[in-house]
């Protein structure tokens, strides 16, 4: 019996050792995490009060799609990065700034293709995915600020407040409900913006696209009293949902905008 348990523990330890890298830190006193990276980030909600970073994406069998392999030659040596000092063992520099925890990815995109960030529910997140990274976030109820350049932004079952901006990526957002405390602002230069809102959402919606088209199954353009159709002036669509509420602004220059009832 003793032998078996020792074997199991050894097995587990070895799993952790050659398995995925992980970094954990307590978030007591922290209410905002700022993460700068160049790769794709999957953000998940964790049950513990800690911030956890894990290599790769969660698959059915643990975390896979691992990145850089262990380097035998590097044993006993420390990795040096131009961007800062790796004080996490995860190739990231971390710094506490008041109630804000800053994380800066020191590894280039070529060495880390994606990782997972696990956060407690009530921590605001500022995420900059650099040039090539994308952001996938689910079930987040705190404030979100996402920025990418080429990568997409996918926010599933969130509540806002949300600020999302990308140059060429697409933005997909699905709301479970809409937080009325602060505005929601989503902009993309050339990508499409696709937002799903609960039917009973109270909001002041403004949608603007220079070259794209706005599609929606919400009644946003009131019929004119004389029965004439409104000819899109300035290509700005503005309207209230369910009597108005929080500001929701969707702006795209080239891409289409889709506003759906969920």
């Amino acid at each position: 019996m003793k032998r078996i348990s020792i074997c199991i523990i050894a097995l587990l330890l070895s799993c952790v050792a050659w398995g995925q890298k992980e970094y954990k830190t307590s978030l007591s006193g922290v209410n905002r995490v700022v993460l700068e990276t160049n790769t794709t980030v999957d953000v998940e909600i964790g049950s513990s009060g800690e911030l956890i970073l894990r290599d790769g994406k969660k698959r059915d069998s643990g975390y896979s799609d691992g990145n850089e392999k262990e380097d035998e030659r590097a044993k006993g040596l420390t990795a040096l990065y131009a961007g800062g000092v790796d004080n996490t063992g995860f190739g990231m520099a971390t710094e506490r700034d008041g109630s804000t925890l800053r994380l800066k990815d020191l590894k280039p995109f070529t060495q880390r293709s994606r990782f997972t960030l696990i956060l407690p529910k009530n921590i605001d997140l500022t995420l900059d995915c650099g040039n090539l990274g994308s952001a996938n976030i689910a079930n987040f109820t705190a404030e979100l600020e996402i920025e990418t350049n080429v990568g997409h932004i996918k926010l599933m079952d969130v509540t806002g407040p949300i600020t999302a901006n990308t140059s060429t990526g697409a933005i997909d957002v699905t709301f479970t409900s809409v937080n009325q405390s602060a505005p929601i602002s989503i902009s993309s230069s050339t990508g499409t913006i696709d937002v799903s809102l609960p039917t009973n959402t109270k909001a002041d919606v403004e949608m603007r696209t220079s070259m794209g088209t706005v599609y929606s199954n919400f009644d946003l353009v009131p019929e004119r009293e004389d029965g004439l159709k409104i000819v899109g002036a300035n290509r700005k669509i503005k309207g209230q949902l369910n009597g108005g509420g929080v500001d929701i602004r969707l702006i795209s220059s080239v891409g289409n905008i889709y506003l759906r009832k969920k």
């Binding site: 804000t100 404030e143 600020e145 806002g160 600020t163 602060a182 505005p183 602002s185 500001d247 602004r249």
Partner: peptide, 12 residues
């Protein structure tokens, strides 16, 4: 404000 959403609210 360090929150972007709050800054937008302020502008609005």
């Amino acid at each position: 404000n360090r929150s972007v959403s709050k800054r937008i609210q302020a502008v609005n």
